[in-house]
């Protein structure tokens, strides 16, 4: 019983990280109708910003994690936002009138550029991510061990998701995002600058990816320039599973993928860790391509 509880807590912790990344995929899809395959690599850059920054920020605040950790989060989120906005401006915006496939292939190009550019800049060898969230044991019974870092991951992810929900559903710019996602032309007739809204969407998505990266690296502290590939792909599966374009769906999809992965590793075999997400992708594409919360709507022409 307590082993099950243990797996559930681990699964929710991993799943909420996938959820944060998946939200970026789904928001950008909602606005631009393409999959930003470079999103997982923006996540990787977030981890490296944290890696280089954390020791300096910690020293600045005399080793107090209570202040240093939020500061590292904030700077990594700002850094990744700038990266995301730059990628959109340089690589995607000039291709906006072109067929979606062109942009999709470009996104794969940007992804490879960041992965191998990252190896050039950061070096290909794995690095040890510094401690930003102390991993002391909070609950320790016979079979149940809950670390403070899994609790921190779940709480941080939850807070960020509620914040995102507030921005998207209760602010003017969030309403404009939903308007643009429905119809670009109609939105521009309202006086909405589409480019600004798209940039803002990349800010939101990329900063969530940065936060996810620091949480992820706090649980799995070995980081390298290719570390974004699998979390990125799994979060993409999560977004499709939940219904691409749907915020609640991305969060739910992330949790399902995280829980399933943890269960498979725990009860079947760690060999299937990465295979399970893609099996889910195949099943969802076969049986309900619109995803759990997605609406079955015909492709817009």
């Amino acid at each position: 019983m307590s082993e099950l509880l243990q797996q559930i807590i681990n699964g929710i912790s991993l799943g909420s990280i996938y959820a944060l990344i998946a939200l970026g995929y789904t928001m950008i899809y909602g606005i631009l109708r393409f999959i930003n395959f470079a999103h997982g690599d923006v996540f990787m850059v977030g981890a490296f910003i944290g890696f280089y920054l954390a020791p300096r920020i910690k020293a600045l605040f005399g080793g107090s994690l209570l202040i240093a950790t939020p500061v590292v989060f904030l700077i990594a989120m700002i850094g990744c936002s700038l990266l995301g906005v730059t990628i959109e401006k340089l690589a995607y915006r000039p291709l906006r009138p072109q067929p979606k496939l062109t942009v999709l292939i470009t996104a794969i190009g940007v992804s490879l550029f960041l992965e191998f550019g990252g190896q050039l800049v950061f070096g290909p060898d794995p690095k040890l991510f510094p401690t930003l969230i102390p991993s002391s044991t909070v609950i320790n019974t016979q079979n149940l061990v809950v670390g403070s870092n899994s609790i921190a991951v779940i709480v941080t992810a939850l807070v960020l998701m509620l914040l995102l929900r507030f921005v998207v559903y209760n602010t003017k710019i969030g309403t404009a995002m939903r308007a643009v996602s429905y119809n670009h032309r109609a939105a521009s007739l309202m006086g909405i600058n589409i480019d600004t809204v798209i940039s803002f969407t990349f800010v939101l998505g990329s900063s969530l990816a940065a936060a996810a990266a620091i949480l992820y690296a706090s649980v799995y502290p070995s980081i390298n320039p290719l570390m974004g590939i699998f979390p990125g792909l799994k979060a993409f599966v999560a977004a499709v599973l939940g219904g691409i374009g749907n915020l609640a769906g991305a969060a739910l999809g992330g949790l399902i993928i995280g829980l399933t992965e943890t269960f498979v590793v725990g009860y079947i075999s760690p060999t299937f860790r990465d295979a399970i997400a893609f099996s889910i992708l195949i099943l969802i594409l076969l049986f309900k391509p619109s995803g759990i919360m997605g609406k079955d709507e015909p492709e817009k022409v």
């Binding site: 308007a179 119809n183 909405i192």
Partner: peptide, 19 residues
């Protein structure tokens, strides 16, 4: 008409006043 089907009537009107 290009109404935003995913926004409420209120939000549609608020978007009209966007600038």
């Amino acid at each position: 008409r290009m109404i935003f089907a995913n926004l409420s009537v209120r939000e549609n009107l608020e978007m009209g006043a966007y600038p």
